[in-house]
Write a protein that binds this DNA or RNA. Structure first.
Lengths: 336, 336
DNA sequence: CGCCTAAGGTTGTACGTATAACTTCGGTTT
DNA sequence: AAACCGAAGTTATACGTACAACCTTAGGCG
């Protein structure tokens, strides 16, 4: 067809099948039982197939007042962690006929941007991870159903929250290192104001406070391999007795610590034990392989999406944190 | 307001400002010059602000027949490479009032899925990376403007293509290793049918064929650190003279090669030189730091989006491949 | 025989927006 | 004084869909 620049509409299908547009809508919307005969329905389906008909989603969205699209706000896509969250969320979404639009949040691609400016798509709800308070109130202003990931249940303005049991993960790390005999620690903390990192710090302090003779130094670094190197290097070469174990807020910081250790001539795990959080592919690529807290990112995303679906259907979302698991590899050993 | 469950429409704004809905549309659409007085316009803007008015995008999309949303199809988000592509594309898109929806393609989240089933959003165009031929024809069937990334210019069914000059990158790698004195190579190739990897293989063979006394073995591995280890290990311990340099199709394969080398007791770069492609954060985290071809992912995404905008506006997209640059680090040295 | 009902449709309308086409009116030009 | 004009709006309509409400016909039943 020479002109065929415009896509066929349900009316075109109706004409081709010799029925009304309403009949087409009924048949393709699977609401035709007892309203349209089987033979007519088949004729409609065939016409739709022949014309390559695709419903106009903008029209459908307008008519139905919903879009079956949700927004997933993530801080970054620089590791596979949030990719996993997305994958899990998208899978559950697809099972329920929803789509997921990804928005790497302000810190990622520029300051103080409005997620909705970029997400041109009309939205039914939002899943937001580690979101700043002001951006959060902005979203709340939209009165959109909202689920917060890894965020303070007390400070989420009543939004549903889905959290990893990161406190338990840090507890496992602390117990592991304490039982190996470590007493002097460096906490290499993510230099980001986020609840999930506050929890790590609090839990670590609480666990170490239970054991006499422990001490912990804290250093902060931006979450990236390169960013961690300088911070770890200076913390490890500071005056006073050197820590025998470095507890890192995530695997990237741990990778930076490896590099700092190499520069200082420290051997892992002989001179220094190192732990991470995330269990990225990076963790097993490093030498020695990293002892780290495994987070199930996809499960996290699935739970987030399920919680949002619950909110959308006015059901109460399941509660309970998602369990995490310390994986002991070769980067931790008793102190010499 | 107790009921306020429905969002305000332009008609509500009109009523609040004491004007017609058309006037609201004109003012907020910035088309009011010479049609509405400055004082009235200000009154409308104020009413819109007070009510927290947000235009209904579904309605706008329906009316305008376009959505200012494009789909970015990527094979995976497991490294920061495609995250960078997305970031670049999203930035350019935002500058032009477009949004980008991400779709990790079939291989990533399940076989033979239809991108459009998941992307509920109505689309103006598609940027697709490394796409299978059948999925491509499916998209072409949609008659949507399409730009292909890293894909065979000859086999893209007339779609615009934007490519990294990966052949030049491989040429730089080959020249670097040859000039160091290497003659026996292992090509650790990505086990994925994709044009960009075919180019690597072809170019490598062509460059080595120019120099007498060279030989190259090829091993294939799935693109992941773990996937590469076994493949590299067996290729490096196969009978015959051991290669002195491993040319990997990407950095993840190189990381796997490091691991294989450790298992075989081979020291890098003394016993074995290794190169990658991508320049991920991983590359400088490894010990020794990896010599690799730096790809500018964000620039790639920007070019892709610009090309799509050109297609949408019936302009001819810029041509010319995006330059890449070999970064020489510590994983390559003369053979012993 | 008249009435009711179910099957198999059709007609009409609303969702919220953008914009083309029309109106009104005070002032200017001829 | 008639004709015109620009400013400042308004009215009406269409985009494509989903669905409520209506219509028509044939058959069953009291």
């Amino acid at each position: 067809m020479a002109r065929g620049s415009t896509r066929p509409t349900s009316r075109d299908v109706a004409q081709a099948a010799g029925v009304s547009q309403a009949a087409v809508s009924l048949v393709l919307g699977d609401k035709w039982r007892g309203r349209v005969s089987e033979t007519t329905a088949e004729r409609v389906r065939e016409a739709a197939r022949d014309l390559g008909y695709r419903p106009n989603l903008a029209a459908r969205n307008l008519r139905l007042g919903r879009t079956r699209t949700v927004l997933l706000v993530v801080p970054a896509l620089t590791t596979e962690f949030f990719a996993g969250v997305y994958t899990g969320a998208a899978r559950v979404a697809a099972e329920h006929g929803f789509g997921v639009v990804l928005y790497p949040s302000p810190e990622g691609i520029g300051p103080a941007r409005d997620p909705f400016a970029s997400a041109q798509a009309a939205l039914d709800g939002v899943i937001a991870s580690s979101m700043a308070a002001d951006a959060l109130t902005a979203i709340r202003g939209e009165a959109l159903p909202l689920v917060m990931l890894d965020s303070d249940p007390a400070g989420s303005l009543g939004a549903a929250t889905v959290n990893l049991d990161i406190a338990d993960g840090i507890r496992q790390v602390a117990e592991h290192l304490l039982s190996l005999g470590h007493r002097r620690f460096l906490h290499l903390a993510a230099d980001v104001p986020s609840w999930t990192f506050e929890v790590r710090a609090r839990e670590l302090e609480a666990r170490l406070a239970e054991v006499a003779g422990t001490s912990v130094r804290t250093a902060r670094a931006p979450i990236s391999i390169e960013g961690a190197v300088a911070s770890a290097e200076s913390a490890l070469s500071a005056p006073g007795a050197r820590p025998t174990a470095v507890i890192c807020d995530d695997d990237q910081l741990a990778a930076g610590t490896y590099k700092a250790a190499r520069r200082l001539g420290l051997r892992i795990p002989d001179d220094l034990s190192v732990t991470g959080v995330d269990d990225l592919a990076l963790a097993t690529a490093m030498d020695p392989e990293l002892t780290t807290v495994h987070l199930n990112a996809e499960l996290f995303g699935e739970h987030g999406m399920r919680a949002l679906l619950a909110v959308l259907e006015d059901r109460a979302p399941e509660s309970g944190d998602i369990p995490v698991q310390l994986i002991v590899r070769s980067s931790t050993a008793p102190p010499r």
